[in-house]
Design a binder for these strands. Structure first.
Lengths: 350, 350
DNA sequence: TTACTGTGCAACATCGATTGTGCAAAGTGA
DNA sequence: TCACTTTGCACAATCGATGTTGCACAGTAA
């Protein structure tokens, strides 16, 4: 029937089979057929034949002609992270609801890769780009502006387009306040002070959380020197080393420990394994970000659950509304209380 | 300079600026310029002008002409799952290494959505499709064959193309054997038997694991009736209910519990919260799939870490080698010993 | 019959890049 | 100088779908 056995049929093939012209076929298969005054009988015949032939539109040709692609891109740092994976899921559902095809790309936090990815998405003519967690937002702004690309920043503020931000300051304030509420009586000297661990001050979200941590500490009348903020990055290994050193310096866990990310917390646990249970009696621990299993540890961990779904939903609202000015929306994260499993020796801490 | 302020420049614009023809520009910007005998000087001039103008190739036009897109698709059930998120990450890295743009789409385990997604990817003319975790592989086989689409199945066997499988039978055997090694002396009656919980027998991977569980139980001389395999699905809630009922029936935890997924394990923990610590003294627990935090629980949990990276790497090897026959490759998962945090009251179990 | 309005569709240009072909001009050897 | 090769590039067709324009024919009113 066809020349190449596996060539996909085009509107020209369908047109020939239907005894119609390609333009009629095109109209009949889309929703332009009414406006183009194609009779319903013709439309039905063409659609039947197209279905029989397993026709599917060539989106490249369509996109070329219409100067849009039906794709919508999202840039994230990594896929294998709860927060971003939730965003991906929500992004995908929202995009499909709007008849768009989501393309999710990760930059591995590398600014060069980041720019390359944005250029690629522009080359594919994505209709809009969501930027979540970029290292160099300014470079992205420039690229998008040059290409006249609709874009929206998520979880970090951008100069050139709307931004949807997680309220990192608010979330970190809530968490820090909760930790102070639960904190055993502080001791004297460095040993009695609250500590913050993980992340990088260069990262927008981390900077906000650190600022909130400092502010609440001051409100609560606690000392907070630069030594108390240990921004050791995101890798578990670095966190393990940092917490080991901290214990070495202080001789014990501090009364309050704010861990900035799950990855850092993973590292922290890597060192905790080596400690006796008593080490945890006089400390309260919080973690920014949520993991269901971390909530089930033997000692209570207060966690912040970011609202990935809310962030994406807000971003799509900007898209739907056609807003392109650099306005800002904020979405509040939630505090999740510990669900510590059968508290064992620590029941008295509850 | 340009008519529309934000129109992206095309090769025609560059050609005019460079005083060359569009075909020369096209060749100069790609790697065909040597074959087309464009002088190096011309190439350099054109590239300079293109860079100045912020030119980027229109991949839709290129794809249309060349009958390929430079895209490679992967279908997964969900994004927000450790295993699939790891696969996504690995897929992305591998695709980019080969100069392809990855498009990752999730089906939410809905067969209808699944087919729609595959059709969409075909319409965008992706150069190859990886299918990981599909509900209806036969429908996908048919669609791909119809379109002449290269595809590779991951973590489930397909009829129409190569498959890369996680060795679920082997992994579950290893885990079950380990659990038997660590199991306290079995009691009499149902209460003394091993149990399997979570997943669905209709799912290929789960079926393999259940078969392995049964086989090892028999080898080890344990009874294994149909009551001992509780395939209650993937949702945490169902697992919570199932484990509650089990405890109710038996009056205690069984000596050996094989939990089939992290989501189910999450549900199991939801019930464990209500139990006293002593409840865990006479049981050994395993979970198929790995979570760093779950490895740090108060009681030891033996986990299987699936090799997402290995699966993807093998799949790309099939792709690179141009293999299209339905051959099968298997990738072995790893057993991860518990890293139980300061074992507390259970140190004697170690 | 004439003029006019609809109806139903075909013809054709177009989107931007790639690629087969052709053709001058420069270079080479006799 | 002549025949021949090589160099360097332009021209035009093409990929598949869309949308504008135009045309034949039917129906209708005067």
């Amino acid at each position: 029937m066809q020349q190449h056995p596996n060539r996909k049929p085009t509107i020209y093939d369908i047109a020939q089979l239907a005894g119609a012209s390609p333009s009629t076929v095109s109209a009949a298969l889309g929703d332009a057929w009414k406006a183009r005054r194609i009779s319903q009988a013709t439309v039905e015949m063409i659609r039947r034949i197209a279905a029989e032939q397993g026709y599917s539109r060539n989106m490249q040709a369509r996109g070329l002609r219409r100067a849009r692609s039906g794709l919508v891109g999202m840039l994230i740092p990594v896929h294998d992270n709860r927060f971003f994976a939730s965003m991906s899921q929500s992004f995908e559902v929202n995009a499909r609801q709007r008849g768009l095809v989501p393309v999710i790309a990760s930059s591995l936090r590398d600014p060069a890769e980041e720019s390359r990815v944005v250029e690629t998405l522009i080359a594919y003519n994505v209709d809009a780009l969501f930027v979540a967690g970029a290292a160099n937002t300014e470079a992205i702004s420039v690229l998008c502006e040059q290409a006249g690309m609709r874009h929206i920043f998520i979880d970090l503020p951008g100069r050139s387009a709307p931004s949807v931000l997680s309220d990192n300051f608010g979330g970190a304030s809530k968490l820090t306040n909760r930790l102070f509420d639960e904190m055993p009586a502080p001791g004297d000297g460095p040993r009695g002070r609250p500590y913050f661990l993980g992340g990088s001050e260069a990262d927008y979200a981390s900077a906000e959380r650190i600022a909130a941590f400092r502010a609440v500490c001051r409100e609560r009348g606690a000392m907070v020197g630069s030594r108390q903020v240990i921004a050791c990055g995101y890798s578990p290994r670095r966190a393990t080393e940092a917490v080991a050193k901290l214990l070495d310096d202080l001789g014990a866990l501090p009364p309050l420990l704010f861990v900035n990310s799950l990855r850092a917390f993973e590292g922290v646990l890597g060192h905790f394994v080596t400690l006796p249970p008593e080490a945890f009696a006089e400390t309260v621990i919080g973690c920014y970000d949520y993991d269901p299993f971390a909530a089930f540890l033997q000692f209570p961990v207060h966690m912040v659950r970011q609202n990935a779904h809310g962030l994406i939903t807000s971003a799509f609202e900007f898209l739907d509304a056609g807003i392109t000015d650099p306005v800002i929306a904020e979405v509040a994260p939630d505090l999740v209380p510990p669900r510590t499993i059968f508290r064992g020796p620590f029941a008295e801490l509850g």
